[in-house]
Simulated scan of single mutants.
Amino acid sequence: MNWLALRMLTGDRSKYLSLILSITFATLLMTQQVSIFMGIVTRSASQIVDVRDAEMWVMDNKVRYIDEAPYLPTNDLQRVRGVTGVEWAVRFHKSNMTARLEDGNFRNIIMMGVDDATLVGAPRRMVTGDLGDLRLPNAVFIDKSGYEYMWPGEPFRIGREFQINDRRVILAGVCKASAPFTTLPVLYTRFSEVERFLPSNRNLMNYILVKPAEDRDPLDVCRAIDAQTGLMALTNDGFFWKTIDYFMGSTGIPINFGITIALGFIVGAAVAGQTFYLFTLENLKQFGALKAMGVTNVRLIGMILLQASVVSGIGYGLGMGMTAIFFTFTNRIAPMAGIHMTTVAASGVGAAVLIIVLLTSVFSLRKVLFLEPAVVFRG
């Protein structure tokens, strides 16, 4: 019977290919949009992910996301260090600045100021240069995508000089960093260099990076810091999701992508359902003949589910393959770098395709289950 079901499925090539293409298109559209959505939202907290030395962030208790952090008084650092369970705590700076290149052009940048002594928060994956070079006078690191944005088409060259707030800086290394939400170049330097760029600001520390003691639960240490200092302490994961929650609730990104994903599901279900329903109608006489021969409804259900499974499996595989090819090429474009197909997107879309298959099968099964075998003898 399975062989007969497959022969019936492939008998009409046009409808067979239409079914596969509808599932393929729905899979491609949904997987692409879900993956891009996840990549863009993750970028909003990419600087949190890149700090691998510390386990906790301490900030003003009104901070809603990473780009909205007022500066803290210097004595807050000592107050945090005095909390029981804190192994060490260092200052950290993040702000937007403007760089002036050798040719006079300006570029907006994201500046990260790390602790002078420990370099906690500095990038660990270098393309060229050495981490220790950040301790050189006027030294800055720039992320790879940022270098290509500021000096497009030019090879990596250490020692380039440019200006930040009329202060001379020297490029000491190119690093790998997660792409930020705004796709601006990310520069790293020591905290003392930031003080040179912004001498008029009395306080320049807007975050304190903390490492809890080995025998202490980070969440317990966070609560202790909250209680003793009045500041807000979050684990890396906690701050990551707090930032993402802000962007999810304060921007139109979820709605826009949600509409596109829903349209992909609706179009895929509608086209596949209509085509599969018409396919079943055209084969009612064959199903009637099988019922007249004594084939049970359970067996007929199995045949239709097999047909739907074959179509959905091929369509899902083709859609995933086309999505992978899409991201392979788009990853070469700077704004799309780092956005790729995720396992969450693939599994979620797989579940959506399964729902489409079940819906189309239900509509087709209604005709078959209530079919009178005498239909085969009608003209």
Rank of each mutant, 00 (worst) to 15 (best):
L28F: 15
L184M: 09
A54N: 14
N105H: 10
G302C: 13
P335L: 06
T74D: 12
Q33N: 14
R81L: 14
R167A: 10
P123N: 01
V169P: 10
A292E: 11
W88R: 12
L365C: 03
M293I: 05
L371K: 07
F25N: 00
V41W: 04
G113E: 02
I356T: 15
S46T: 01
V58H: 03
A117N: 13
T275A: 06
Q47E: 08
D115I: 08
P212K: 09
I20Q: 01
T243Q: 06
F25L: 13
V63W: 07
T128N: 10
P218L: 09
L131V: 12
V34F: 15
M1N: 04
P218Y: 08
T118C: 02
Q286F: 11
F370K: 10
G121L: 07
T182S: 12
T118A: 03
R168Q: 10
M111Q: 00
D67M: 07
F156D: 04
M30I: 13
F191W: 10
R366H: 09
F25H: 00
D76R: 14
Q163K: 15
D166I: 04
T182R: 10
F92H: 15
Y316G: 09
A139L: 03
V295T: 14
E193R: 12
C222S: 14
G104M: 10
M150D: 01
Q286R: 12
P137Q: 06
V34E: 07
L171M: 11
I164S: 02
K144F: 10
F287N: 01
M320S: 08
A337E: 14
G82A: 09
V267H: 00
L354M: 13
